[in-house]
Amino acid sequence: MGTRARLPSLIRSLQKEAQPKPTCQQSLPSLRRAFSLYDQINLIDNVPNDQLRFQRYTDSGFTVNGVDYEGSLLCVGNMLMSWAPKKFSEITPDSLSIFQTVRPVPEILILGCGRYIEPVSPELQRFIRSTGMKLEAIDSKNAVSTYNILNEEGRIVAAALLPYGISS
């Protein structure tokens, strides 16, 4: 058998090898479930460089992506700004007026009240609803955790945060 005669059989054998083998339809288990809790925390900490991640809070500020910030902060998506209110009573529709122009509108505003959860005035509730956002008012410690989780999920989220040391 000459070289020309073997060529078609060689091509057929290569085509058979190149065809994908049937794959199992069962989904693979999540890798996160296979690691310890410590490993899960490390996996969660590996966020993209352009994504905000609160790493620590103090009585006077926050650590975000390795940078320490003093005072109140306003976060919209992955944008971080200094925010004027120094205590809960200074949080007004005017202090949150940026949300009248921000697009896309965040689905939720997480309001970090400081050390304790504070009741939100009906006026402020109406203003936040008028922007199209939902409101979650919680202590700042839980506010930064909630922000991290929702932001990591890719949700459009905003946070207005007073330092944890602030109380009424």
Rank of each mutant, 00 (worst) to 15 (best):
R4S: 15
A5Y: 08
R6Q: 06
L7E: 02
L7A: 05
P8S: 01
P8Y: 11
S9Y: 07
S9Q: 13
S9P: 10
L10D: 12
L10M: 10
I11V: 11
I11L: 09
I11H: 12
I11R: 13
R12D: 04
S13R: 13
S13Q: 11
L14W: 06
L14Q: 05
L14H: 06
Q15H: 07
K16G: 07
K16S: 08
K16T: 09
E17D: 07
E17S: 14
E17A: 15
E17P: 02
A18V: 08
Q19W: 02
Q19L: 12
P20Y: 02
P20A: 10
K21W: 05
P22A: 02
P22Y: 07
T23N: 08
C24T: 15
Q25A: 10
Q25E: 10
Q25N: 12
Q25I: 12
Q26W: 03
Q26P: 01
Q26M: 11
S27W: 03
S27A: 11
S27N: 14
S27G: 11
L28D: 13
L28P: 15
P29R: 12
P29V: 11
S30K: 12
S30D: 09
L31T: 06
R32P: 01
R32T: 12
R32S: 12
R33G: 07
R33P: 06
R33A: 09
R33E: 08
A34Y: 02
A34M: 08
F35N: 03
L37G: 06
L37W: 13
D39T: 03
D39L: 05
D39A: 07
Q40Y: 01
Q40E: 10
I41G: 12
I41V: 15
N42S: 02
N42T: 04
L43R: 03
L43G: 14
I44M: 07
I44H: 15
I44S: 12
D45Q: 03
D45V: 04
D45G: 10
D45K: 06
N46Q: 07
V47K: 00
V47E: 00
V47I: 08
V47A: 02
P48Y: 01
P48Q: 02
N49T: 14
N49H: 15
D50H: 09
D50E: 15
D50N: 13
D50P: 00
Q51E: 04
Q51K: 04
Q51G: 02
Q51P: 02
R53T: 00
R53L: 04
R53Q: 10
R53G: 01
R53F: 02
F54M: 10
F54D: 00
Q55E: 09
Q55I: 08
Q55D: 03
Q55V: 06
Q55R: 09
R56F: 13
R56A: 15
R56V: 12
R56D: 05
Y57G: 00
Y57E: 00
Y57F: 09
T58G: 07
D59H: 05
D59T: 03
S60Y: 12
S60Q: 13
G61V: 04
G61N: 08
G61E: 01
G61T: 02
G61I: 04
G61R: 01
T63P: 00
V64A: 01
N65F: 01
N65I: 01
